[in-house]
């Protein structure tokens, strides 16, 4: 069963009258539930653009994205927010934690407008503990190292039990050892919790740890390799 279906997806930017940038140019693929997928390609090839459309953050120029049987181009703003809230988790290269708010409150941040149950509060502490930063729960993000910040971000992406986690260069600002730690964490969540991971990366050395690699160039898929080594970390 495909959890994500992308059909003839296009994203064009018009800069000036006849100057069109084809950031994503007629891309189609499916992602099965529980996959661990990497999207790679040179800078400007459209990786982030694609990920943002998968994450309901951006709207396609043409084509469709179906996430867990919801056709996202048919949804309004609030319905998109709802998809993001119920089905998706995000991890960013720059962590994007909210400053001035403790680590544990950052983890709980997605729930804030909806109300936070005590069960979720316990869960957030459990996640931080599991990621080895339980003692950092009440620290401000400014007081955490890059790796610790990214763990908090991973915990945040998990708080609402998403089916899919989208990560844009999650290791981009970490040294290779810390980066691998984060990948290991993601892999564990992938195998144990059956969460589908889609990760954009520059780092070719990380590809040995994933099952599937989609290569983009100039907005087009140039290869889709489903036989990744999936080495242990």
């Amino acid at each position: 069963m495909d959890i994500i279906t992308v059909k003839n997806l296009k994203k064009y930017y018009n800069i000036g009258e006849h100057n069109e940038v084809k950031a994503i140019d007629d891309v189609s693929f499916e992602v099965e539930k529980g996959e661990f997928l990497a999207i790679v390609g040179p800078s400007g090839s459209g990786k982030s653009t694609l990920l943002h459309m998968l994450g309901c953050l951006d709207t396609p120029t043409k084509g469709e994205v179906i996430i867990d049987s919801s056709k996202i181009h048919e949804l309004n703003e609030d319905e998109l927010s709802n998809i993001r809230f119920t089905k998706l988790g995000f991890i960013f290269q720059t962590f994007n934690l909210i400053p001035g708010v403790s680590a544990v409150d950052n983890v709980l941040m997605p729930l804030m407008p909806y109300g936070i149950s005590s069960a979720k509060r316990i869960y957030s502490h459990k996640l931080l503990k599991k990621f080895g930063i339980g003692r950092r729960a009440n620290h401000d993000p400014g007081e955490l190292s890059g790796g610790e910040k990214q763990r908090v971000a991973v915990a945040r992406s998990l708080i609402n039990n998403p089916k899919i986690i989208l990560a844009d260069e999650p290791t981009g600002q970490l040294d290779s050892k810390t980066g691998r730690e984060i990948i290991r964490l993601m892999r564990e969540l992938n195998s144990k919790n059956k969460i589908t991971f889609i990760m954009v990366t520059h780092d070719e050395t990380l590809l040995q740890y994933v099952k599937r690699v989609i290569r983009l160039k100039d907005g087009k898929i140039i290869s889709d390799d489903k036989n990744g080594k999936m080495l242990d970390l």
């Binding site: 994450g55 998706l88 992406s157």
Partner: peptide
């Protein structure tokens, strides 16, 4: 602005 984008990405609605 960037924070609001993050909050929207993690599931906050515009009205939130």
């Amino acid at each position: 602005i960037q924070e609001f984008g993050v909050l929207k990405a993690i599931g906050w609605r515009n009205k939130d």
